[in-house]
Amino acid sequence: MDLDDELRRLFHDDRLDVAVKPGIDEEIVGGARRIRRRRNAVTGAFVFAVFAAGGFAVANIGGSQSLPPAESGTLTTTPPTSSSASVPPPVIITQTHTVTVTVEEPPAGNAPNSNNVPAGYGKLKLGMSQADALASGVLVQPSNTALGPCAGYRSESVPADEAAVVLSPSHGVARIRLPGFAKTSAAIGAGSTVAELKAKYPAAVPQGSGFAVDMPGEPAWRYVFSVDGAQKISGVRMELKNSDCTLS
């Protein structure tokens, strides 16, 4: 056998599989959290102080740590604590989020399990009002291109797409694009094949150069899968079926 082929065969060998040690995922998440906490300890205390106490007593709160505030420069552009949602938060808000988490420790895995929650991704739900969506903090930058009466936004999870999230003044959140690693409940995501998509979603119908699948739920919505030249899924969006937005 040709050496090239033999190498490919070897790297496809099942014997390369390594058993996943139980609990290792939590260990890794905890380890990442520790590293971040160490790095951001002082910055975190600083932001907390700004948020909670209006920015004094910083030196005392941060005093127990010797690490330099790694990203303290960004603090000057941190917007004032936003209770109003009329202006979408600038990109820099991402930093504030990361830092604040080091102060508050939410319990992991407390997902809502009610059957009445509308479909969505993270804090965003389809049909959620424009004001609530803007207040969620996950929309980072509005786009200049109008989509009918609607507006597109880059999101924290898909910053590369200027219309990752589309907001309609009358219908609320009309589109949520998923990040590349996200999968639907049927485990279809970027990289899945069209054959896999059709097997998992027999109701898929062609739409544009991809496919759409109507999903049960209120408000009515569907998945839209874009497909690349190699007949693989290149992107997944959740969209309201009925909105006044021009969703291409």
Partner: peptide, 8 residues
């Protein structure tokens, strides 16, 4: 740090 998902 939340596990985020929704249920239809």
């Amino acid at each position: 740090l939340h596990a985020e998902w929704t249920v239809e």
